[in-house]
Design a protein around this nucleic acid. Structure first.
Lengths: 358, 358
DNA sequence: GTATATTACGCAATCGATTGCGAAATATTT
DNA sequence: AAATATTTCGCAATCGATTGCGTAATATAC
């Protein structure tokens, strides 16, 4: 008929005939308690299976020891890498990670933000949902000085914020340039929706490369896809390849789409890369599995997560220095493989770009 | 010079000249407050940007609204699917998911368990680390009646617990049988360590199939790999293929290993499936990317996560009925593809097993 | 018009740990 | 030995929301 409640510091205090304050201080390593008493207290705590109640502690200290992460889809390679990076960075600092998915929906993102607010996370890391155009749901964080770091998917320049990302414009520029160097002249681009900064920038980089090479910008070669799913990509490819002037290259916004397109092309007899070059984005491990191997650009998800976590910890540690907002831009890299090897670039002395098996 | 603290129900109470209890009851939909007052209170709460403090609420109610998940590696396809399933199931029930990774290390798992205990999660879902052989770190959960559900990686029969998993023995049996049916006679098995129940069962299923077909069990064809990494798999394959009697099939414990082995074989001129059949496990999307396409068995990660979440919610809702422990076993399925197509089984009338592109 | 039921709300304790302030006990200094 | 410094610990308020119990106010019944 014992009480069901957990053991508290009051129980320990009563048993040792000291005050709860002493227990608290002893267990948290305060130096104002004598060594013998500390030893005695720790011993009893172990014996009685005492479990500190972080909830009570957090309430009193007016902060929690967990940080929130709002991602789009946890089971997408790139995003799970980000989370993995965050976790690696913060978990050994006594921080827990609460993960919520928006499924790329604005509504879910708003709800996630509210839930994390209520649970008093001490910081937030966000990859914006594809749908999100309004950022008011982050206002309460700003107002209450809870640091927010945007990872990869950030608002545009109109919102001042901390962010960790890649240079999407440059990366897309390099990718497009590579296709042009391979002799492609009608380059299509399957991208995401332009209100999401990432894709706007990629389209800009793509445009810039074309312009610099004196190629015509052609609206019908650009798709702003809503979900960026493999199916959407294949549908677009179908349309593109039945055009009077079909493209001789497709620059995709992610690798899984690119791979689906390669498989589609193989099934209908379109030769890659001779007839059509395919460029991916992210450099998933699958790039080296598909045949022909997929050229792609490295999108360092894990590092983005790690840097986001580190930045957030800094902000927490320095207790909010609101003056300067930081933007951390990580390097990307083009990995040229068979899917764009229209010229035999190995022979032409560019082996540095080629990543071989093993 | 305003106070930095958040708005509380006391602030609202003072402003409306009512008691905090009234505010609390109004906001939580208690029917003992008049409609006009409720409306008035909700309106003011919105106006003052009131954010309920779940920490205080949880302390008072002696429970948190989040559940803990201990997984091995968040960025492994199968495990991120599990988490995704859990999240889908519980998040719309007002529950948050706290995710921690063990990296397949016992020590990390113990620390994770402790952290979740301190944060007073109301329930726990675990996929055991590869290293774990001792389960004492879950004792405090049992003792304090915090429901625990093991997902996929569970302790053996010696521990009574709730679990959601597949029938590893049957699945391995079916996989091995398939290889035998294809005419393979020297079948190797690259598995995980036998103290982890999953792998013990798979080895049993593998043995059973061989025995039933009158094939010899040969120790040198069985590997108990520590990390189950692709590299380990390739190393083992190297050894196996340089044996006087090399195997004519390899049954791998996961798809990424199987794929690395296929790539290795292609690079050294071993013909698949004519000379060597390769069988995977999990049915990752990559099975349909590698050439030849990889035969594999469906391991329904997402469903495992979903069922685990559902079971946990049941346990929470029914407030711990300790009598019967539940084991939910989900169906698996063999998807035969080219990597084991030694016989032309399509012609022999087994098209049901063949999953074609698109 | 009195008795009873119902509605609407307040009082104050409570959840468990933390911490500023103060004080007793002991050690150190002069 | 008296004065001062240091060590060690307790008191009691506090974090913010919840809730059992009590009660005044209003409604309904007889």
């Amino acid at each position: 008929m014992k009480k069901k409640t957990h053991v508290t510091i009051y129980d320990l205090a009563a048993e040792l005939k000291v005050s709860p304050s002493t227990i608290s201080r002893a267990l948290s390593g305060h130096n104002s308690i004598s060594k013998e008493k500390v030893k005695e207290i720790i011993q009893l705590a172990k014996k009685r299976n005492y479990i500190p109640n972080d909830i009570a502690s957090n309430l009193r200290k007016a902060k929690s020891n967990n940080i929130g992460v709002i991602t789009t889809w946890i089971n997408r390679t790139f995003h799970s890498e980000i989370i993995s990076g965050v976790e690696e960075e913060v978990s050994n600092k006594g921080m827990n990670v609460i993960i919520l998915q928006s499924h790329d929906r604005y509504k879910d993102e708003v709800e996630n933000a509210k839930a994390l607010l209520n649970s008093r996370v001490s910081g937030l890391i966000v990859s914006l949902a594809m749908e999100t155009k309004n950022y008011d749901h982050f206002e309460p964080f700003f107002r209450n000085q809870i640091p927010v770091v945007f990872a990869d998917r950030a608002p545009g320049p109109e919102i001042k914020c901390h962010q960790v990302l890649i240079d999407n414009e440059l990366t897309a520029y390099v990718a497009t340039k590579h296709l042009i160097d391979q002799g492609c002249r009608r380059i299509a681009h399957l991208s995401g929706q332009k209100h999401r900064e990432n894709y706007k920038e990629r389209i800009q980089g793509y445009n810039k490369a074309l312009r610099e090479s004196g190629l015509r910008l052609d609206k019908k070669y650009i798709y702003e896809l809503a979900t960026k799913s493999a199916e959407e990509g294949v549908m677009a490819t179908r349309e593109l390849m039945s055009l009077p002037e079909p493209p001789d290259a497709i620059f995709c916004t992610n690798d899984s789409m690119a791979i689906a397109i390669i498989q589609f092309c193989k099934s209908v007899g379109i030769k890659i890369p001779e007839q059509l070059c395919i460029m991916g984005f992210n450099n998933d491990p699958t790039c080296k599995i598909i045949e022909p191997n997929l050229t792609s650009t490295v999108n360092p998800g894990f590092e983005i997560g790690k840097e986001s976590g580190k930045l957030l910890l800094d902000l927490l540690h320095f207790n909010w220095k609101p003056k300067e907002y930081r933007t951390i831009t990580l390097d990307t890299q083009l990995i040229a493989r068979e899917s764009t090897a229209r010229l035999n670039f190995v022979k032409k002395g560019k082996p540095a770009l080629l990543e071989t098996f093993q």
